[in-house]
Simulated scan of single mutants.
Amino acid sequence: MSAFRLARTATAVLLAVSGAALAAGPADAATPAAASASAHHYGHSYDGGVWGGYVAQGSGFRSVSGSWTMPQVQCNTANDLFAPWVGIDGYGSQTVEQTGVQVDCSSGSPVYSGWYEMYPAPPQYFNDPVDAGDSFTAGVVANGGGSYTLTLTDTTKGWTETTRQRLNAQNVSAEAVIESPSQSYPSFTSLDFSGITVNGRSFDAYSPQAIDSGQYTETALQNGAFSIVPAS
């Protein structure tokens, strides 16, 4: 990805992702007692967080999927928080349908957990074990009629979580990004996305644009793959 810093005018457009929609409650996920980051929403305020990744815009986005490996991180402050995720909507719309893995440093040490979010409903956390070095595949599918299937698989540990949710959404964008809604992220070397597809085609086919808030540097997207590193 070629990195660029979002201008304030572009950021203002992105504020359109914060809004209201109707979402069903989680059917098969639980919020851990230690999930202090649960107050943070992912994917709804591009100017209020730290960003890096790619977004495709248009209409008729029915599915997005991608893979990555969670890096080893070093917590710098208790406010450090970041997550890679894939999703539909969130850029120029009022909802986001998304799933990924977060690293939360509020305990003083990195805590990894899988999650999904049907914004504006809060994120829901899976109880499955997650560690640095685990490889993940995530996907969001729009089934039609406001129904969505979100799937997160830890291919290293061998678990899969699938949940079906409902949301009155528009399906006008698809993303593969990393985000820190706390505006503070732990130190890490690199995070590599691969195999990103949209509607069953390579992400490249949709001419996605880089989105970043200046704290990350992205490599060029090639065959549905790119890397993100903290900006120097």
Rank of each mutant, 00 (worst) to 15 (best):
F4H: 12
L6V: 12
A10K: 11
A10Y: 13
L14N: 01
S18F: 04
A20F: 14
A24F: 08
P26N: 13
P26K: 10
A33M: 03
G43W: 13
H44T: 07
S45E: 11
D47T: 08
V50D: 01
V55Y: 06
Q57P: 02
F61K: 05
S67N: 05
M70C: 10
P71D: 15
Q74A: 08
Q74I: 09
N79K: 06
N79Y: 03
D80Y: 02
W85V: 01
T95W: 15
V101D: 00
V101P: 03
Q102W: 12
V103D: 14
D104N: 15
C105A: 11
C105N: 03
C105T: 12
S109M: 04
Y116P: 00
A121N: 15
N127M: 06
P129R: 02
P129L: 09
V130C: 12
G133H: 12
A138C: 11
S147H: 05
T149F: 00
D154R: 05
W159F: 11
T160A: 10
T160N: 04
T162L: 02
T162Y: 01
T163Y: 03
Q165S: 11
N168Q: 13
Q170V: 09
V172N: 13
S173E: 15
A176K: 07
S180V: 02
P186I: 00
F188Y: 15
S190P: 03
D192Y: 12
D192S: 13
N199Q: 04
S202P: 01
F203P: 05
A205K: 07
A210H: 09
A210Q: 14
G214A: 08
Q215V: 07
Y216N: 02
A225E: 05
F226W: 05
I228T: 14
S232F: 07
S232N: 14
